[in-house]
């Protein structure tokens, strides 16, 4: 079922795009990435919408936390009421992310399968290419073996110069940063600390993974992140406020690296 619904279509689309796009595997990955992002657009839109709604609820949630800090049960009840009232599903941001994972894993498998650098991989590929293709599409057998080289990269192997993993880290971090609102007030609450920690560790973690995976997948990751950024900005949700962590969107190194802004009075004192 996995092969039939996800993997085989991806493999054959990659092969066809490769044939149509002048035997260029990077272009094939780019095109398939764009198509996948378009298909996932309703999900990502919902995810981002949910994220924004959650951001807007933060001040009210914070008030609730302060009000019921000694009564966790009451806090939970009131929190859920607030979600209901605002029409927000707290899982609305996570579920679309979860649904995207099979696509990501399928893409990874499709890249390694279609590049088929070893006899076992090529045999495996032979069992998954569509044999009855329309005449106006390139026949997979004519395309195999694919040319996996692009610039300094062998797309079937990790990037030897570490350029793509660095780009993966930067674009993932940038996307997370733009999506996450700055922590309000000077208080160092636990959620904000967690958020900052995630902003740094997740990109590094994904970057570390991309060190070991075929660089073709890193291409997908980078392109997907860039499209996500463009999509987010096009929706008008992105702002320098999130990036620099300041209320007015002004540059702040502290905010850029995720540290909380000092309270307004402190700022005022420093200025005076």
């Amino acid at each position: 079922m996995w092969d039939l619904l996800i993997l085989d279509p991806m493999v054959n689309l990659l092969l066809w795009f490769y044939g149509i796009l002048w035997d260029n595997y990077v272009l094939a990955i780019l095109l398939l990435t764009i198509i996948i992002r378009l298909l996932l657009f309703p999900l990502t839109w919902k995810q981002q919408k949910s994220q924004v709604a959650m951001q807007e609820l933060q001040p009210r949630l914070k008030k609730l936390q302060e009000k019921h800090k000694n009564d966790p049960e009451q806090l939970q009840q009131k929190t859920m009421e607030l979600y209901r009232e605002a029409g927000v599903n707290p899982l609305g941001g996570c579920l679309p992310t979860l649904i995207q994972f099979p696509i990501l894993i399928g893409f990874y498998r499709a890249i390694t399968r279609s590049l088929a650098a070893s006899p076992i991989q090529l045999l495996d590929l032979s069992q998954h290419v569509y044999t009855n293709t329309p005449t106006w599409l390139p026949a997979p057998a004519d395309l195999i073996p694919l040319n996996s080289h692009f610039a300094w990269l062998d797309l079937a192997k990790p990037d030897p110069l570490y350029i793509l993993p660095i780009l993966v880290v930067v674009t993932t971090w940038l996307q997370q940063k733009l999506l996450t609102p700055p922590s309000t007030g000077g208080a160092e609450n636990q959620a904000a600390a967690m958020s900052r920690s995630m902003q740094l560790t997740m990109p590094l973690f994904i970057g570390y993974i991309s060190l070991t995976l075929p660089s073709g997948l890193s291409v997908y990751w980078v392109v997907s992140n860039i499209i996500g950024l463009i999509q987010y900005m096009a929706m008008g949700k992105s702002s320098f406020k999130n990036l620099f962590g300041t209320e007015d969107g002004s540059f702040s190194l502290r905010g850029l690296i995720g540290l909380p802004q000092p309270p307004a009075e402190e700022k005022g004192r420093k200025r005076s």
Partner: peptide
């Protein structure tokens, strides 16, 4: 809560990392 949400996301990413 934000905390639980991030823990869930971290767990999912961790699983994905191991899978990949």
């Amino acid at each position: 809560t934000i905390k639980r949400k991030y823990w869930l996301l971290a767990a999912v990413l961790l699983i994905l990392a191991f899978v990949l």
